[in-house]
């Protein structure tokens, strides 16, 4: 009889010790989400990863490089038509993301204070998010096409002699990325900017700093970490460009981005291991870029963007 509490004690104390480190029954609430992420994200990812090391019999990769584990990757990096999709994607995604972030800074800077109609202007700038890539592409084809309004205006004003080709090439895709990506970058930048304590800038003003000095030495350093995040998210959006690259781009050559290659391998050649290999390469390239940006960010100001002085 006397043994019962002695047995029970270590159990209770273990529970207490766990609770002290924050492990208690509340964590059970996490269970559905964890099961979910493991089943629908991590498992497919790992499955794809191992599939990419098992070249499908009869596929191009297996015919050329045998059924060794790296045949798909070797084919990808030796075939210029596949390999160059990386550069094509970066060439479209990086400038578009960079432009979206850089353009949103001055506009958000203008709009950080309070003024009449701010909500209306914000709403109008955010509307393009609703357009979606497909409508944007459709609109670009109609608006910037050879007989579209834009070319008509340029011709009538005498700026050009013959219609400028802005669709079905590199520029069409970049335009579509700017139209869909800019509102997003703008929203994030604006929210980071409004998070910076305005009294800091006023303090600098009382010390005689001009607007450029205030921006350069007060606002920008506080904003830079947020800008790095904004750039990363814009880049993710731009990097996965898919429908617009097909519709307003030139999917066979100039805008054959890596997602087109992955889709082509999976659903036109039914070579799932090659498709997984391309998807893994795509993820790796993207994570490298994000890693570089965030690594650079880690060297900046580390506190919260609130900047409480």
């Amino acid at each position: 009889m006397a043994a019962a509490p002695a047995v029970a004690r270590p159990r209770i104390s273990l529970r207490h010790r766990l609770a002290e480190r924050g492990v208690d029954r509340t964590l059970l609430l996490l269970l559905p989400a964890v099961v979910f992420v493991v089943a629908l994200f991590i498992y497919p990812f790992v499955y794809g990863l191992q599939l990419s090391f098992q070249p499908q019999a009869g596929s191009d990769a297996a015919n050329k490089y045998g059924t060794g584990p790296f045949a798909d990757y070797r084919l990808f990096f030796s075939d210029p038509y596949l390999r160059n999709t990386i550069w094509t994607t970066l060439k479209i995604g990086l400038p578009a993301a960079l432009f979206n972030v850089l353009a949103s800074v001055p506009i958000a800077y203008r709009m950080r204070g309070r003024f009449r109609g701010k909500r209306a202007v914000t709403t109008i700038l955010v509307v393009p998010i609703t357009l979606g890539t497909v409508l944007t592409a459709e609109g670009l084809l109609a608006f910037m096409g050879p007989t579209g309004w834009l070319n008509r205006i340029l011709l009538d004003l005498g700026i050009v002699d013959h219609p400028v080709r802005l669709t079905h090439n590199y520029w069409g895709v970049v335009f579509s990325l700017v139209i869909t990506g800019f509102p997003f970058a703008f929203l994030l930048t604006l929210s980071y900017l409004t998070g910076i304590d305005p009294t800091l800038e006023r303090a600098a003003a009382t010390l005689g700093a001009g607007w450029w000095q205030r921006f350069r030495h007060i606002t920008l350093p506080l904003l830079a970490p947020g800008l790095a995040i904004t750039f990363c998210l814009s880049f993710v959006l731009a990097f996965s460009v898919f429908p617009s690259a097909i519709m307003v781009g030139e999917p066979a050559r100039q805008t054959r981005v890596i997602s087109i290659a992955a889709f082509h391998a999976a659903f036109e050649q039914y070579d799932y291991s090659m498709a997984s290999a391309i998807a893994m390469i795509m993820g790796a390239v993207e994570l490298i870029v994000i890693g570089l940006v965030l690594g650079w960010r880690a060297r900046l100001y580390k506190g919260a963007t609130g900047g409480k002085g």
């Binding site: 994200f41 497919p44 990812f45 499955y47 794809g48 990863l49 599939l51 990363c232 993710v236 959006l237 990097f239 996965s240 898919f242 997602s259 992955a262 889709f263 999976a266 498709a275 997984s276 391309i278 998807a279 893994m280 795509m282 993820g283 993207e286 994570l287 994000i290």
Partner: peptide, 10 residues
């Protein structure tokens, strides 16, 4: 953080 096409295919 990862674009939908990357994990969408697997």
């Amino acid at each position: 953080l990862i674009p939908p096409i990357t994990y969408g295919v697997p």
